[in-house]
Amino acid sequence: METEPQITFRGLDHSDAAEGIIREKIDKLERFHDRITSCRVTVEKTTRQGHKGHLFYVALDIEVPGGSVHVSGKPGDQNAHEDLNVAIRDSFNAAQRQLQDHVRKSGPVHVKSHPEKHHGQVVRLFPDEGYGFIKTPGGLEVYFQRDSVVREDWERIDYLSEVEFSLMDGEKGPFAVNVSMRA
């Protein structure tokens, strides 16, 4: 989490035990969704009019990339309980369900990866046949062909030319793609 969770108590004194339970629940949410950026928890105790006892409300505001999760703790909500531990449990369960919905709706995040760039020197070139071989500093010889050379670099490539390329695995071994002259 990017920021320290904020836990606020209203209408009751701070409780180390309740805060410990809340922090455990936050840790569990972070294991479920590891991109939570902030979490605010408000624990409120109110007195019911005309009845003995108190009601506890636990509200959560959780920020994640692309959205947020809000579990309301307003009086009259279903999240009102006479037992603080039950109120905490139910609010965090509701938050986890909302996080699941958020993940499902937003879909997986795909980050396009670019192949690692390698460099080497042309050690054999067969211009009439349209292919050649590049030797890497590590001693690996890699096949390349005219179609793998970018722009008009094929016309400029010569024996001992310095090139950079991406490495692919083929049926007959590694081969170079996106071959270009080194600047």
Rank of each mutant, 00 (worst) to 15 (best):
V149Q: 01
D34A: 09
G139S: 04
E2N: 07
E44N: 13
N178L: 03
G120P: 00
H102S: 10
S72E: 15
I26F: 01
I62S: 02
D90W: 07
T42Y: 00
F144M: 14
A17W: 00
R35H: 10
T47H: 00
V109P: 00
E82S: 13
E4H: 03
H70K: 06
Q6E: 08
S180M: 07
G107A: 05
D77Y: 06
A18E: 08
D27R: 10
P115T: 04
V122P: 06
A183L: 00
P137Q: 08
R182W: 10
E171Y: 04
A94T: 14
V122W: 05
L125T: 00
K25E: 14
H110E: 14
P5W: 02
H54D: 11
D101F: 07
R10G: 01
N79T: 03
L29N: 06
S68N: 11
V58T: 14
F92R: 08
P115M: 04
P174G: 03
G138H: 08
R146F: 11
V103E: 13
I7R: 05
E164W: 02
V163P: 05
K117H: 06
Q98L: 11
D153I: 02
V163W: 09
E44W: 05
S180R: 12
D27V: 07
F32E: 12
E82F: 03
G170C: 09
V64M: 04
P127A: 13
Q78F: 10
F126G: 05
Q78N: 11
L29I: 05
L99M: 12
K74E: 10
D83R: 10
E129F: 06
A94Q: 15
R10I: 13
P75Y: 04
I88N: 02
K28P: 01
P65M: 09
D169V: 07
E164R: 09
G170I: 02
T42S: 06
E164L: 06
P115H: 10
A17V: 01
F126S: 11
A18W: 01
G53T: 00
G66V: 04
H119Q: 15
N85H: 07
Q96N: 12
P115Y: 00
I21Q: 02
S113D: 02
H110L: 15
H70V: 13
L84N: 01
G73A: 13
S166M: 03
R97C: 06
H51Q: 14
D61E: 15
V123T: 13
T136I: 10
Y143C: 05
V142R: 06
S106A: 13
H119C: 15
I22R: 02
R40T: 11
R89E: 12
K28V: 03
V179P: 08
V58N: 09
F126W: 13
P65T: 04
A18M: 01
E63L: 14
V64R: 02
D158N: 07
G66S: 08
N178M: 07
F32H: 12
Y159F: 10
K52C: 04
K135Y: 07
I134V: 15
K172P: 01
E164G: 06
I157D: 11
D13G: 11
E162R: 14
S68V: 01
G173S: 12
I62Q: 08
S68I: 00
A94E: 12
D147T: 11
H14W: 09
G53L: 02
R104D: 10
E155D: 15
A94V: 10
K74H: 09
R10C: 06
D61R: 14
G50T: 01
L99E: 04
I88A: 05
S72F: 13
H110I: 15
H70T: 05
D153Q: 03
N79D: 10
R182T: 12
H51G: 00
